[in-house]
Amino acid sequence: MKTDAVAASTPTTPSTPMRTNPVRRLLYSRGIAPYVFVLPFVLSFLIFFAYPVFSTVVMSFQEVLPGQTRFIGWDNYRHLWNDSFFTALRNNTRYTFWTLLILIPLPLVLAVFLNSKAMRWSGFFRSALFIPSLTSVVVAGTIFRLVFGQTDVAVMNMLRHAFGFETINWLAKSSTGMLVLVVLATWRYAGVNLIYFLSGLQSIPSDLYESAEIDGANKWNKFWRITVPLLKPVTIYVVTISIYGGYAMFTESFMLWSGNHSPNDIGLTMLGYIYREGIEKNELGFGSAIGLALLAFLLAVNVVQLKFFGLFKKEED
């Protein structure tokens, strides 16, 4: 064994006849082992990610039909300039905006409360808030559809009656439809973001708070001057995945309107649009073009957002 290792580590003398087993030499080579260990990842990345991405790029320049696939230049990209595309983009943008506005501050504040020693039952509330994110979107979406139904006996309409308002059809108007989507998102994802913020909070050393107390800082000052700034890395992460999640939203809308067809496309999302064009209308080429446009758009948004947060700048002080 030892001789093998020596032989392998002295490859500069190839003329010496090596009687050792070449397979063993290969297996014990230090130069190669790392490649072997990363091989499964590299392979799965190439097969299941790089190849499909490459293929999507190619397809976005094609009309994909069985037996008659042909290149059509930039036609698919030219077709992107239409109402449905912008409706989908607008819907996703509104949804992302509202989820950011609610799903960042709300879980942050809740996390601070749950992290506080004065809070009773914090373990219970932690799990209670997290449980919704374990439910399937399909089930949650169906329940929300019924809760926000258009009949007089739907839960939310009964709530309106209690305040003297009349029955409305929640899912028929753009504004109320978006409200339902955002409520569903808040219910479902507040717990996830809460966990991120909690773990961030627990990594803030408590002596910072102690010394602030000695300096006479009140609760608000401590929150605003210590907690929020030190949570910045977590916040950046949560914002990034929220933007991504906002533009990748599909199932919620699909379930609320029980299908990909909402009246006036008020629930049409980018992914819904890809699905509609690519699969429902069998225009895989056009679907690919929409997907790539979404990718480019998201990259741009994320770059702007990260720049805004100063991630590309070197740490100050």
Binding site: L65, P66, G67, T69, N282
Partner: peptide, 25 residues
């Protein structure tokens, strides 16, 4: 059908979807 593998022998296609299956060959 597009990928050339995994299709059943017989299948039901609803009328408003048949257009997709008659595209190309």
């Amino acid at each position: 059908l597009q990928s050339g593998t995994g299709a059943p022998d017989l299948a039901d296609i609803e009328i408003s979807k048949i257009g997709n299956f008659l595209k190309g060959e």
